Simulated assay, not measured.
Amino acid sequence: MKVELEADKCVASGQCVLAAMDVFDQDDDGVAVLLEQEIGDELLDDVKEAVAVCPAAAIRLVEQ
C-alpha cells in the first residue's frame, strides 16, 4: 500500500503521529511529514487509524 499526504491541507493536530508514529512526524510548525510512503501489512492498521482520525482528511491509502 502507498500512503499519500496532502500537507497543504494539514491542520497540525498531530493525530496521525499518535496513530502511526513510524509513518508520520511533524515539522517545526506542526504540519505532518510523511516518513514512509510504501507500507507493509505490519503498519496498515496504524495508517488506517491515522486516515480515520485526521480532522483535515489530508491522508489516504492507495493500493498499488
Rank of each mutant, 00 (worst) to 15 (best):
V62D: 02
S13Q: 14
L5H: 04
L18M: 13
A20H: 15
Q15F: 14
L44T: 04
Q26Y: 02
F24A: 14
E63D: 15
A58W: 09
G40H: 08
A20C: 10
D27Y: 12
V47S: 03
Q15P: 01
Q26N: 06
L34I: 06
Q15I: 04
E6D: 15
D25C: 10
A58V: 07
L5T: 05
I59K: 14
Q37M: 01
D41Y: 14
A12F: 02
E36K: 15
A20Y: 09
L35P: 10
Q15V: 04
Q37D: 03
K48N: 09
D27I: 08
V3Y: 07
V17A: 04
D46F: 15
E36I: 05
D46M: 02
A58C: 07
V47N: 02
A12Y: 00
Q64K: 01
D8A: 09
D45R: 05
S13C: 15
A19E: 07
P55M: 11
L18C: 05
V51K: 01
V53H: 09
E63P: 02
G14N: 12
V23K: 07
L44A: 02
C16K: 03
C54T: 09
P55A: 06
A58L: 07
L34N: 03
V3D: 06
L18H: 10
V17F: 00
I39A: 10
V3N: 05
I59P: 10
E38R: 04
K48M: 03
D25V: 02
D29V: 01
A7H: 01
P55V: 06
L5R: 02
E38W: 07
E38D: 06
Q37P: 03
A20L: 14
A12S: 14
D46V: 05
V62A: 06
V51P: 01
E38F: 12
Q37N: 04
V11G: 11
A57P: 01
D22F: 05
E49S: 09
L35Q: 11
D22R: 10
E36Q: 10
A52I: 07
V31I: 05
M1E: 02
G14I: 13
E36V: 04
D29P: 06
R60G: 00
G40R: 05
I39G: 09
V31D: 13
V31C: 08
G40I: 07
V62T: 13
D28Q: 15
C54L: 04
K9M: 01
E36W: 05
D46S: 09
E4C: 05
L61N: 00
E63N: 13
D41S: 11
C10F: 09
Q15A: 06
E6G: 03
L35R: 07
A56N: 10
V62I: 12
E42K: 10
D22P: 04
L61I: 15
A7D: 07
A52T: 01
A7P: 12
C54G: 11
S13I: 12
L18R: 13
A32P: 05
D25T: 13
C10A: 08
E6K: 11
V51L: 02
A7C: 02
V47Q: 00
M1L: 11
E36S: 12
G30S: 06
P55C: 08
F24R: 11
L44N: 00
D46W: 06
E38L: 06
K9P: 08
L44G: 01
D29S: 15
L61E: 01
M1Q: 04
D28M: 09
D8R: 15
D28P: 04
D29L: 04
L35Y: 13
D28Y: 15
